[in-house]
Design a protein around this nucleic acid. Structure first.
Length: 945
RNA sequence: GCCGAAGUGGUGGAAUGGUAGACACGAGGGACUUAAAAUCCCUUGCCCAUUGCGGGCGUGUGGGUUCAAGUCCCACCUUCGGUACCA
């Protein structure tokens, strides 16, 4: 029979489905292995050729692991809540659920054609009420928890309440928005509303006024990772800062554990580094700078909070610095424009100017602010602070180079050793004092200060009691001193911000929250899920309320419910856990399922989720771990990032002012404009000129200047997009070459983690190989022709070499070299005219992970009633590989090259490498037999006579 | 600016410190065929020689370690990704 891939692939896809070959259950007798793809957002455009890259890789690995005896969980589903469906709904009035359903069906159809081994019985979508019930449930758990820093884990909020009742904030060390202190009596004296407000300060999901990234174009707020350069990632609309009441997840409480956990997972270094930078741990000190009060003004005495144990009736600003050692170089202080103390400390004379500056700074869009980073601006408050170490009086300034949401929104400025402070001091003519020098006797003039001057190492100068110390010791000494005087302490700051969890959208999970007396309360768990209500329109209301404000009876027992919905990352944060037990209606997942499947062993997806989904998911899982649900602390043990597939755009060259097109090689002789041309009418960079004429009416009467009778197109690598005519969807290729060829070709393209342009130029080669492989089992008239003869040693060697190579490559995820190995093996067996069952059968098993349809067909033709999916993975026999009688070239310094033929054993370990000299080789050539020849593969290292 | 990754033929890409360019595409030549498709064989890093052997140069640039470097070390250049008034 000829290789009819359409028939074969359709046949087996149906059999797999009918027999539920890929459905798996917990099996305690077998080790588990969990392989997961980042589930897709089902967009209207359907699957493009870049999507399957990761899916194919994970499918190969799942099939491989299954044949190795593992019980493999390999599920798939859809991240179905999201903006595109909603925006489409706003434009057309069509309900997002309808579009989503349509897109999901399209995706499924495309995925099915590629022969994946997903257990579809576990499929769910994040927009299914059965699923988002558990997203809502987790939210309530977060709401009902706080982070106990002493236990280093989340604890029930009821426990915190009990502590407050007993001893107030005494002995409570909890992650909080504001540092608060009160006694048990004060707590008990609070009314319910005040108590609820106080608890909000500690909850892991809390409601607070916060500066958000507001995107008017999308009508919603965005998380930090959804904003790039002041523009929204989706849509590219400008983003501004706005103070809004929002739900927030206290992700920052987990900063240290998120950082520490990176040590335990097998991710790429670059991805771990991206997360480390995003978490941004900096060690330093918090120090209080009291307000100078010996002025003519009568300061209202204010205590600035914190765990400040100093003189309590003093006004003091808490600052954070990573360089406490430079405190002798402080010549001024800077507050951020949002700092709440500004109004109270500004002197009457400066009031007008300061207010004008603050108003200007607050209203500036994020984009403007980022664009003008280099521009120095600021204003003097008229007030002074006291440097607590030097007791010097220093001016307090306001400037937007100090950020409100990092540290304390106040800094001590050391212009000699910080480039921003330096620029500020220069601009406003403030004094600059050097306190670090490379060598204590060499004080370079501060005027010559440059950013390149390395002040991270060196010795302290002009620095009182730390003079002469190294920078490191100086820092330690200052921390000790401020601790002694109770005016500061060593501390750690993180760049990682809490995650804003409200979106002013319709197509997301509703919050299980209602409001009583202005305070939020969770709806009882047994009433979940809170279903997304119907609305008359999907856009925000005229008064700017989110779309849910349009829903009728959006109340709970007469109380209004939350109008916001949850963000995209809510549903994707814990989905991998639900696959373990997807139909459980009593629990998120059963303990039994979780203890068996534990966590994801291999996670495959794009690196673009490094600072979004992959952080949130880890946070989510750590929280569920703390409350006793998820038994593993890290959700994704090993992660590989598939590189983006870029488009490869083809160009034709139109001669200016005509409808003539000139081939690539001749274009320099004319004045031409390059024009993008649909890659689907170009084959191996040769244009199908007839198809081109039909492509668009403008080209109907095109003329061509050919070279060698062909029109050759130019090409460039660009992002894959419809408008560039470089989108390839997998269906056409499956139609043309079959799924097995497409699967192997996508792997053959290059290393999985590398970004690469999609290019179909090589697919013919893989197709040829698949056909050659088919022919190994058939004679030239395509009659089945497999013999039961015993293979020769040579043939076994080809097989075992391949088994070994494929196994190594699978373990390394080096699928491109594995495909090459299959090609080599097939060529060698073809040359040897080997059609022996004992060789071909194991080869089928090896290749079934890559090309499941053709191998399944051959497997059944070989007489196996069961699917190849569960065939045992072959083991290679080293004895076929050790011996070699190849000929090795030996060169030596006499410029002579001889070829020696001998059997060798690899004995690399005992080598003391020695250069062969003429005499050694001469002896050998003279016929003297060497006692021992030490070789490494392909090279002789030493000969012992 | 800071952090990370990568630079190898016409192209995609192979090379535990050990014959650089596997495998594939493309290209050139040939066989089969009335012809085309399909298939098969040969050549294919560059330069010189090609009547045969062969010789020289080559992995972004410049140094270094080593018997031996695409691979390790130092400096630089380029490209891509992340991040950015983060004190």
């Amino acid at each position: 029979m000829e290789y009819k891939y359409h028939e074969i692939e359709a046949k087996w896809q149906k059999i797999w489905k009918d027999k539920q070959i890929y459905k798996i259950e917990i099996d305690k007798d077998r080790p588990k292995y969990y392989v997961l793809d980042m589930f897709p957002y089902p967009s209207g455009a359907g699957l493009h050729v870049g999507h399957p890259l990761g899916y194919i890789a994970s499918d190969i690995f799942s099939r491989y692991k299954r044949q190795k005896g593992f019980n493999v969980l390999h599920p798939m589903g859809y991240d179905a809540f999201g903006l595109p469906a909603e925006q489409y709904a706003i434009q057309t009035g069509q309900h997002p659920a309808v579009t989503t359903e349509k897109n999901v069906n399209r995706y499924r159809e495309q995925l099915d054609k590629l022969g994946f081994s997903y257990d579809w019985s576990r499929e769910f979508r994040t927009c299914d009420p059965d699923y988002y019930k558990w997203t809502q449930w987790t939210f309530i758990q977060l709401f009902n928890s706080y982070y106990d820093k002493k236990a280093d884990k989340a604890q029930p909020i009821t426990e915190l309440i009990a502590r407050f009742e007993q001893s107030g904030t005494e002995n409570v060390d909890a992650a909080s928005t504001e540092p608060l202190t009160f006694t048990a009596e004060e707590w008990k004296a609070m009314d319910e509303k005040t108590q609820q407000q106080t608890l909000m300060n500690y909850r892991l999901a809390y409601l607070a006024d916060t500066w958000v990234n507001w995107c008017a174009g999308l009508g919603t707020v965005l998380a930090n990772d959804e904003v790039v350069n002041g523009l929204s990632v989706r849509g590219g609309f400008p983003v501004e800062r706005k103070l809004m009441k929002q739900w927030i997840l206290r992700v920052s409480a987990y900063a240290e554990r998120l950082l520490a956990g990176l040590e335990k997972v097998e991710w790429t270094d670059s991805l771990k580094e991206i997360q480390r930078n995003w978490i941004g741990r900096s060690e330093g000190a918090a120090i209080w700078f009291p307000l100078s009060t010996d002025d003519e003004y009568n300061w209202k005495r204010i205590y600035m909070g914190g765990n400040y144990d100093g003189v309590k009736d003093e006004v003091a600003f808490e600052i954070f610095t990573t360089r406490p050692d430079t405190i002798f170089g402080v010549t001024f202080m800077v507050l951020c424009p949002e700092h709440e103390m500004i109004g109270q400390i500004t002197t009457p004379g400066q009031k007008e100017e300061v207010e004008a500056y603050v108003t200007w700074a607050k209203n500036r869009s994020e984009r403007d602010r980022q664009a003008e980073v280099k521009k120095v601006s600021g204003v003097f408050t008229g007030a002074y602070a006291i440097n607590p170490i030097t007791e010097e009086r220093i001016p307090i300034w306001v400037s937007d180079y100090v950020l409100s949401d990092y540290g304390t929104g106040a800094i001590m400025a050391v212009p000699a050793h910080d480039s921003r402070d330096f620029a500020f001091a220069r601009h406003f003519n403030l004094p600059i004092r050097q306190v670090v020098a490379p060598n204590p006797n060499d004080l370079s003039d501060p005027d010559t200060w440059t950013e390149s001057m390395d002040s991270k190492t060196g010795y302290m100068v002009n620095s009182g009691f730390i003079n002469g110390m190294t920078v490191k010791d100086g820092g330690k000494a200052i921390i000790e001193r401020v601790k002694e005087q109770s005016i500061g302490y060593g501390t750690v700051n993180y760049r990682l911000r809490d995650a804003i969890f409200s979106r002013q959208r319709y197509w997301g999970e509703p919050f299980p929250i209602y409001y009583k007396d202005g305070m939020p309360y969770p709806i009882p768990e047994e009433e979940l899920p809170i279903q997304l209500p119907a609305v008359s329109e999907f856009k925000p209301t005229e008064t700017g309320e989110p779309p849910l404000a349009r829903a009728e009876n959006w109340t709970y027992k007469g109380y209004p419910m939350e109008y916001n919905t949850m963000p995209g990352f809510a549903g994707s944060s814990g989905y991998y856990l639900r696959y373990m037990d997807p139909h459980n209606d009593k629990e998120y997942f059963s303990k039994e399922a979780n203890e068996y499947w534990r966590n994801v062993d291999l996670y495959v997806g794009g690196a673009e989720h490094a600072t979004g989904h992959l952080i949130y998911s880890r946070f989510w899982n750590k929280f569920l771990h703390d409350i006793g649900l998820s038994c593993e602390e890290e959700p994704f043990k090993k992660l590989i990032n598939q590189g983006m597939i870029q488009g490869r755009t083809n160009f034709v060259y139109r001669i200016v002012g005509s409808n003539k097109y000139v081939s690539l090689g001749l274009k320099d002789q004319y004045d031409v404009t390059p024009i993008r041309v649909d890659v689907n009418i170009v084959r191996n960079d040769v244009l199908d000129t007839e198809a081109f004429k039909k492509w668009m009416p403008d080209f109907a009467d095109a003329e061509f200047i050919l070279e060698d009778g062909q029109y050759i197109c130019g090409w460039e690598v660009e992002k894959m997009s419809k408008s560039k005519y470089n989108v390839q969807n997998p269906d056409d290729l499956v139609e043309k070459y079959g799924a097995d060829t497409l699967r192997m070709y996508e792997m053959f393209l290059g290393p999985i983690e590398m970004a690469k342009p999609w290019d179909t130029n090589g697919i013919e080669g893989v197709f040829r190989f698949i056909k050659k492989f088919w022919r190994l089992f058939h004679d030239k008239d395509f009659n089945w022709c497999v013999s039961d003869e015993e293979p020769t040693r040579e043939e076994y060697k080809i097989l075992h070499k391949t088994i070994k190579k494929i196994e190594e490559d699978n373990e390394k995820f080096s699928f491109n070299t594995a495909v090459s190995a299959f090609m080599i093996c097939t060529n060698e067996l073809g040359d040897a005219k080997c059609n022996k069952r004992k060789i071909l059968e194991p080869l089928c098993i090896l290749m079934s992970a890559y090309a499941p349809h053709i191998t399944e067909e051959l497997w059944s033709m070989l007489g196996h009633p069961d699917s190849i999916v569960d065939a045992a993975y072959p083991v290679h026999d080293e004895s076929y590989l050790q011996e070699s009688d190849f000929t090795y070239p030996v060169s030596f310094n006499g410029k002579m090259r001889v070829k020696l033929s001998f059997p060798i054993t690899y004995t690399q370990k005992e080598i003391e490498p020695i250069l062969l000299d003429n005499a050694d080789v001469q002896k050998w050539l003279d016929g003297k037999q060497p006692k021992k020849i030490i070789v490494v593969p392909k090279r002789i290292i030493n000969i012992v006579f």
